[in-house]
Amino acid sequence: MSAAAWVRTPAFSIGLTVLAYWAALALHRRWRWVPPIVAACVPIVAALLLLREPYAEYNRGGDVLTWWLGPATVALAVPMYRNGLALRRSLPRLALMVLAGAVVGMATAGGTAWLLGAPRAVAMSAVPKSVTTPIAVEVSRELGGIPQITIALVILAGVLGATFGPALLRLAGVREDRAVGAAMGTASHGIGTASLVRRSEMQATVSSWAMAAAGVFTSLLAALLRLVAR
């Protein structure tokens, strides 16, 4: 098999991706400010450009990894159940808060993009941008968005929350731990949740529950939206 043919196998794409991810984690352990997703993607893009390998070819193997986002979505039930047990008494109020955040988030994300002239597919890509990646990807596909754009926005929403979320909430007078956690989980999913772990256990617990709940609500609302639009 020639070098070029070998590069075209799914095994090469998967191996390259796992290797880049592993290296990115090592880099992230040493320099905390390096986001693993960026550190993993840069060498892959460089390798593909260098080998003149089209993305579609790489993605035949990539799709194997992407498929596992489905089971990862299912797995979100575990933290949701575990944290739900700890929050039992405030769960109905938290659900209402998360639902309101999800509605406002979808409307403002899609609405702002549309108002500024974005084509339908781009605006739809923005709609699920607050929720955790695997659910955002599924919702984006359902709405006719572009999953790659959705992922970029999802990551940025997470970074925004981890960086500015707590300070913004404080400015708005939101101090109660459960309220802070719910807002962070709804607006900034797993990245926001991870940033709370060292601040407060209660904030992180609520955030982790809110992130899963926001994903569920957003996909239900998207389904509703499609039924109404039909």
Binding site: R93, A113, L116, L160, V180, A187
Partner: peptide
């Protein structure tokens, strides 16, 4: 369009859920 959508929506979600929590 994408940057504006990201920023507006991020602040809107955070404050909707957070401020509602302040009341509830």
């Amino acid at each position: 369009a994408l940057t504006a959508s990201l920023l507006v929506s991020f602040v809107a979600v955070l404050l909707t859920t957070g401020v509602l929590g302040r009341w509830l």
